[in-house]
Design a protein around this nucleic acid. Structure first.
Lengths: 190, 190
DNA sequence: TTCTAAAATAAATGATCATTCATTAAATGT
DNA sequence: ACATTTAATGAATGATCATTTATTTTAGAA
């Protein structure tokens, strides 16, 4: 029995992300991904059922990573605002540190491929955030609106701000992140 | 001299948008677009230099349309808040009315193709919005932050809220839009 | 050391890709 | 009515596509 090479698996994922980011989904062929990863095109089919499986699996794995990063050091004793501030800061740092992964996920999420990912997967990764918003509503600290709407105002901005293509100037100075969080908080607080 | 058929041009654009939305950029081939539009693949090259030109031109045209729609009925005498509220409502209505076009533009904007579009094109279409934010800063009504950051908090949410894939429940009830605008305004106001 | 099972691959498959070219169809100006 | 110009196209191009198959390599079990 021979085992799958985890370095090879990582090389395939890295190559997929790199090629999709640099040339787009349309031009990211199996042959090019394999060449970039330094393996045979056929090897890809040892690790993934087909190309769609490769792309969807890569996306889900990236989202899982970000889910873990954002909910890191979760402290249930903190006040609502501080909990959200930690999520926000974690998200900002995670996106900054893994810009390539984030760019891939943003591109993928707008694609029809995204419909193939079951919604409960995302709910699982980002559950603590939604729970915190619900708790804030119960405590009459946050406006009583649907969670999806609050999420949009709370977390959509950080995804844009951490993207240097959109906001090149943001995040260089200390205090930038906390200031931006205040804007998001002002939007949803009662 | 024979003229180009504007109905044929529209059919090509509509087919491009439809196919990209339904199957993604990766699967939207020239042959399929031509078949959907009811023309020969070669006809496409009468209207566009190549496939890239077709996609980029379609995107720029869509952005132009939205730019016009958002800045419609611009009244320079209105207070800052009312100006922004009108932009916001215009944007919401435009996206709702042309969901297919919006979906295409969102997908395109995340693609490496987007780098081919000169930034001054977008600045031209959405100039009045940026001007209004700058005026708000000068009048000490809006927080003194870079325009890109204020834009993110003011207009990113409406793009998400108007997307039924993300917020299915939003916008059905009268007052939803004005309420949501209040959240965005609370974020950036002083 | 030998056997074995799965990893890894080179090569080949038929389909589909973007684009071009030679030709035809149609609308305009005279 | 005719000549001219360009829109429109069918067919063909070679390249590249995703995937499969037959074969070789390799790591762990016996």
């Amino acid at each position: 029995m021979r085992h799958k090479d985890e370095h090879k698996q990582k090389a395939i994922i890295d190559a997929t992300v790199k090629l999709v980011n640099e040339t787009g989904f349309a031009a990211a062929s199996v042959a090019k991904i394999a060449r970039e990863a330094g393996v045979s095109p056929a090897t890809l089919y040892v690790y993934y059922k087909n190309k769609e499986d490769l792309l969807v699996s890569t996306y889900v794995e990236i989202k899982r990573k970000f889910g873990v990063a954002v909910t890191r050091e979760y402290d249930p004793t903190l006040p609502i605002r501080d909990k959200l501030a930690r999520f926000w800061r974690n998200a900002f740092v995670a996106i900054q540190e893994e810009q390539a992964l984030f760019q891939f996920s943003e591109q993928f999420a707008r694609t029809p491929y995204a419909d193939l990912v079951p919604p409960e997967v995302m709910e699982e990764y980002f559950g603590p955030i939604f729970d915190t918003l619900r708790e804030g509503i119960r405590q009459k600290i946050i406006k009583d609106l649907p969670i999806e709407i609050l999420s949009v105002f709370m977390f959509q901005p950080v995804m844009q701000l951490a993207n240097p293509k959109i906001c090149a100037a943001f995040g260089k100075e200390p205090g930038d992140v906390d200031l931006a969080f205040t804007l998001a908080w002002d939007a949803i607080k009662l």
